[in-house]
Structures are given as structure tokens and as C-alpha cells.
Design a protein around this nucleic acid. Structure first.
Lengths: 215, 215
DNA sequence: TCTTGATTACTCGTTCACGAGTATACGCAT
DNA sequence: ATGCGTATACTCGTGAACGAGTAATCAAGA
């Protein structure tokens, strides 16, 4: 059972891991994360970054090391990780690594309401997705290969994982698309009829009622 | 480019799709979604549900149809979808289906900071994950097979997708675990040394500095 | 020299997400 | 009849997530 973290945002994890390397101030964290390609998967949201840093401090996971002001007006506070912060980091990573937890993806949500479109259109949109996915995969693959020449695999492993998942998605979409365009997808005729006439085939009508058990 | 939705929460998508079938009041939406197994992927969060319904109404995507009070005190407002709501729903589904967008997963985050643990421990945790994943996959597979006897595939397609992704994750974890336990993972010795002594091997030290370009 | 644009480094107000809490009705066992 | 657990149907306050806005510095060009 995933225990409630004092600071649950995954950006907090990134901040802690950045501070393990060396103390730094918030803006520098952002640069470091960006250089590590973290902004690819996780756009840096400024509001969140500063809130997260504040919360981490409030809970004693990080602390202000010094506060230097030079030239530029706004005083930059350099933070360092505390012992409690290190403990939280390792404990958190342990939990995240060992305990799978299904998260909802936007694509899953889309698939679950795909029936509101016509099968033709759905197929059309899926083929657009497929093209985009293929392109993105190729780009990421070559970027990974490029990076692998300098950076040890340990620090690229998350990208490898993402690529594996992306491949699976591509396989799924390709398969589904094949069934839709070849007409072998079961129930395609009913779906087609429904989307044209708005009439739910009798054997489906019964199913749609189920679960409503009105009142 | 994903346009900004008036109501961006994916629960709004679920609400709209529920209301396409028939008008209903918020609590009934929750029941319907639950019966459709939506609570598996997306725990129903009461606060969000009512906020989302409010926002949908505010933006004219749904409207109050009637407000009946019978027996039970709290007045239940029945909502129905508007034309604008239907348009938003289809447009949104179109976008979600056609446009991939990488979302960050907790496991990806975990992998990206895996280096803070020792390779031994990481392997250990990954094998725990693998066991849990296998078990969950088996359960979901048989649940899907069960459901497929009654429900047309069109309405189970999102679960098929999730299973495909889950299989890919299992494959990845199994592979990584294999490399870690067999010792074929590149850089394993360095990682091991670092986790025991805290000393970063010289060729890595240089890498860790990179991206910091202090000030 | 003066302006312009890019970079650094945040701040602030709004929106959003949530989950614990509340309150009533209904069925059923005592 | 009366108490008790469970299902129904929300409400509300807290706290998190954001993203546009601000403001200073610096470098380079006109």
C-alpha cells in the first residue's frame, strides 16, 4: 500500500535526486533537470517547482544552505538535502520500483469512449496516431543511441523503458487499425450502423442499460 | 498542439460520455462509471466529480434537466449533455486518439533515480515488481476474458490496450532483471563500487558535473 | 549610447483535486 | 418498535498545480 508521502509530487523526487549530487538553488535545479532530459517527459512547471521546494523544506527533507545575492537582485537560496531527505528519497524509490500501480493514460481514456465516433473516423485518427508514434519513436531511438555513446546505460534506463512501452503501443495501434480497415474487427457492422443511424442494435441496447439500474 | 480544454480533467470526459447515453445525476454517474469498470483505472474522487460537473455546467457543456427531491433530503439534480457538450466530447476524443502525448509514469521516475540504490537492492525490488505485475496481469487477463463473453470487444478495447502495455513492462523488467542478476549489465561494477563506497568512478564524475555548468 | 532581446530567477493569484466529513433514508435483525 | 449497519448523495476546507506575469541583468547590435 503506497504510503502517503509528505510531498507526493514526482517533481519532488527529481528535486531530491538533484540535491543528492550537490546543493543548489531552485533555478539551477531546473537547469540540471533540463540537461538531464527530464523536461522531455516532465515539462518544468515553475509554480510547482517553487511550491515543491518550499514543501520539502517545510517537512525537513531539504534545508537552506546559504542565501547569496550577487548582482542580480532576487536573492537565491541554495538548498541542500538533509538526512531525512536522503531517507525519504531511497524509501520512495524503493516503493516506486517494487510496487506497480496502474495509472490512467489519456489514450486509455480515449479508447474507452472511442465508440462515440464512427469506425471510419476512428481508424483515420488511429492511423494519424500511428504515423506520429512511429516518427517520435525513431527520433527518440536515435537520440538514445547518440546519448549512449557518452552516458552509461544506468542513466538512460528510463528512456529504454519508455521506448519499450512506446513500441508496445505502436504494436497495439497497428493491430487495431488492421482489424478496423480489413473489417475483421468483431461487431464492426453494428458499430457502423449505430454511428450512421444512431440506433443501438438490440443486443447492445440491453448491455447499455445494465449498470444503470435506475434509482 | 493540444488545445486548452475548458474542463481538462479526464473525469470530465467520462462524465460527458456517461451523459451521452442518458441524462442522470452525479451520484448515478459515479455508479455507471463504476459498473463500467472505470473505477479500476480511475478511482472515483468525490470532490473532483462534483467540481467537474459544476465546471461542465458553467461552460455550457451540460445543463440541469430537472431537480427531483423524493424521500431523501438532498435534492438531486439530473444533468443532460448539450449540443456544445457533444461537440466537445467528439472533438476531444478525436484529439486524444490522434495525438500521442507522452505522460510521465511513476515507474519511469523511479528508474531515473534507481542509481541511488545498490544494484543488489534494485534487482531485489524489481523482482518483487515482476511478481506483482505477473499476478496482476493474470488476474486482468481472466477478468477480460470473462467480460468478453457478454460485452462486445469495442467496449473492452481500452483494457486490451492496458494489457498490451503491461506485457511490455513485464518484458522490460524481466530483461533488466536478467542483466542485473547475471551481471551482464554494463557498468555494473562501477555502480556496485559507488553504492558501497560512495566514490564516483572518475569517468562518471566528469559526467555528473556536466549539465551543472555552475552559474 | 541606447535599445532590444535573451536569460535568469522568481512571485502571485487562480484554478483544480481531493478526501474526510455529514446527513438522511432504508432494510433487517432483535 | 427500535436500534444498527449500509447505501445514497452530497459539501466543504485544505492544499496542490499551475502559468502568466514581473523584474533585473547582460550582451550585442544600431
Amino acid at each position: 500500500m503506497a504510503k502517503r508521502r509528505k510531498v507526493g509530487n514526482l517533481m519532488a523526487l527529481a528535486v531530491l535526486s538533484a540535491l543528492v549530487q550537490q546543493p543548489m538553488h531552485p533555478y539551477q535545479m531546473a537547469s540540471v533537470l533540463r540537461e538531464h532530459g527530464k523536461d522531455q517527459n516532465m515539462k518544468i512547471k515553475w509554480g510547482s517547482l517553487y511550491t515543491v521546494v518550499q514543501n520539502l523544506e517545510k517537512h525537513g527533507l531539504i534545508e537552506a544552505a546559504e542565501s547569496l545575492r550577487q548582482g542580480g537582485r532576487p536573492e537565491r537560496t541554495v538548498y541542500r538535502i538533509t538526512e531525512a531527505g536522503r531517507a525519504e528519497l531511497t524509501d520512495w524509490v524503493r516503493e516506486l520500483l517494487s510496487t506497480p500501480e496502474q495509472e490512467q493514460s489519456r489514450f486509455t481514456a480515449a479508447l474507452s469512449v472511442m465508440a462515440v465516433l464512427s469506425p471510419r473516423e476512428a481508424a483515420d485518427l488511429l492511423s494519424q496516431r500511428l504515423i506520429a508514434l512511429d516518427k517520435a519513436l525513431a527520433a527518440r531511438r536515435s537520440a538514445l543511441a547518440e546519448a549512449a555513446r557518452e552516458v552509461p546505460r544506468l542513466f538512460l534506463i528510463e528512456e529504454e523503458y519508455e521506448l519499450a512501452v512506446a513500441e508496445a503501443e505502436i504494436g497495439f495501434v497497428r493491430g487495431l487499425l488492421g482489424e478496423l480497415t480489413s473489417g475483421t474487427f468483431p461487431g464492426l457492422a453494428d458499430w457502423q450502423a449505430f454511428s450512421e443511424t444512431g440506433i443501438v442494435p438490440p443486443e447492445l441496447a440491453e448491455l447499455m442499460e445494465r449498470g444503470l439500474h435506475p434509482q
